[in-house]
Design a protein around this nucleic acid. Sequence first.
RNA 1: GGGCCCGUGGCUUAGCUAGGAUAAAGCACCGGCCUUCUAAGCCGGGGAUCGCGGGUUCGAAUCCCGCCGGGUCCGCCA
Length: 564
Amino acid sequence: MFLKFKNEAERVLKDALEKASYEYKDLTLDLDESEHADLSSRIAFSLARTYKKPPATIAADIVNHLELPTGDMLIGDAVAVGPYINFSVNDSFLRKTLQGLKNGIAADRKKEKIILEHTSANPDGPLHIGHLRNAIIGDVLVRVLERAGYEVETQYYLNDMGRQIAVVVWGADRIAYDETKKADHAVADVYIAANRMLEENDEFLDEVGELMRRYEAGDAEVVRKYEVAVQKCLSGIQASFKRLNIQHVVFVWESTFARSGAVKGVIEELTRKGNIKLEGSAILLQLEGIEKALVIQRADGTSLYTTRDLAYHRWKGENCDRVIDVFGKDHELVSQQLSKALELLGVKSPEFVIFAFVSLPSGSLSTRAGRYISADELMEKIEERAYDEVDKRRTDLDDSKKREIARKVGIGALRYDMVKVSPDKHIVFDFDDALDIEKKGAPFIQYSHARACSILRAAQEQGYVAVSKDYDASRLKEPSETELIKKLSKLGYVIEAAAADLKVHQVTKYARELAESFNLFYKYCPVLNAEDELRKARLGLVDCARIGLRDVLAVLGIEAPGEM
RNA sequence: GGGCCCGUGGCUUAGCUAGGAUAAAGCACCGGCCUUCUAAGCCGGGGAUCGCGGGUUCGAAUCCCGCCGGGUCCGCCA
């Protein structure tokens, strides 16, 4: 609803500028949200220069020429305040916002289909907190885009051809998996132990190399061994995804591109179209604007990760309208090379969401060195901590109910924390901080939602109709009521903006503000004790707030408990 | 050494793409509020030369240049 209001205000402003004969062509008409008005224009500042008049005079002049539309419109008023032109909404805007929430607003269906890639962690162990950032940013982005009306397919690129996996497969022949452990953790044990053996005895290195060659060639026995190892790790990763409330991902195996001939095709085409340098039998591709030449084929004729990734991205590009990759900062150069090479191939370039690293106070993360905190360990501990908090507050509930709430609160807190910060901020992970449930953003929002549910429950218990079909929204005149409605009206607008900019952390900020608005309403506007018509209207508003809070949490992939 | 990113109260951050109304939140700290729908809440208070130096502009946290500090990449690894 807010976007409609904004469009309307911009149109009205444009008409006024024309009527007052101001030349505004090069200037932006874009209106800003402001604490002083629902929307505000600063255009008078820009016009002041060319027209050599004080901005306040120009603003007043524009407002004099401004005609508020008649009929069923959303603008309440437009006034000049000094150099600013401030627009406010009318009652109809508020009423329509509530109506829209009640009916469930469907976003305009976008035509584009998007393939979004996230996580793509090597299947050599469990997800650690670095992967967590990737997975959660990616998953929230998927939810934002879907909510904004896009069709999204989420893919996890499975690097099954790397050295790491060869080391796991090699190790699995010599070391037994610990079957008492979660599968991906058992794989990590073998991986770490195998690495140690390889460091101590470099004759083994040839055996690992042999495995890689046979796997690329499609040797049946080796392929079978690989599949066992990769699937084992994958089952663990999928279990973690499920627990994290990560939506369905399609696993795409790297090796399929090597074996299908797609990689060969890419090499041939780049050799034909690109600026190529040969060093022995190795093929190097010189890309524009990138100093370092990109090796696309080894001297021994085998393929490289980059080339296989190129084949994968070509395939993605040909099967959808937009390709989005959520990558770590270490892939930044790779992503540039990817774009340039795809350009040569005539395939559209992906859009990248690059996130900075998560490190420990003791340094960077490493699966091989066993220096990492697994996502599972973190989830385990944060759920435990959340349970302590629930237990403290709700002695009346039975244990399974408390566990259920603790799970939602714990995982929610974790997810919120991971996306609330802009992706380009480096994070030093602090365990105590991560587990401190009381200072988290998610429980604050979940709590507001629970309060809304609680009011509706109490209404029913007291024999009222919790949500009447018709109520008089014009009775909602308290500042905390109108503020809450205005905040609710921005839900769709915020999601559209986040989808357009691919910036998910904006949604967390909005979610907090919405909860804050509801808490103020809760504080200042008694619902059940209000007189009949007002109670009906307030119950209607509570229900809309419940929907808004639930929806914004859903976009963040956070479950909304009905009580806490 | 070169490229990219970050540097905002004690701590964690938003704001920076499109420069404008007293720099906005959370945590921590101090002081208040549970006989009315869950106090995981609400109200009030102190605390910031927006890393440093220059420039552009009527106006800079925001744009430009330089410097300092931190991160990251620069493999015939993945």
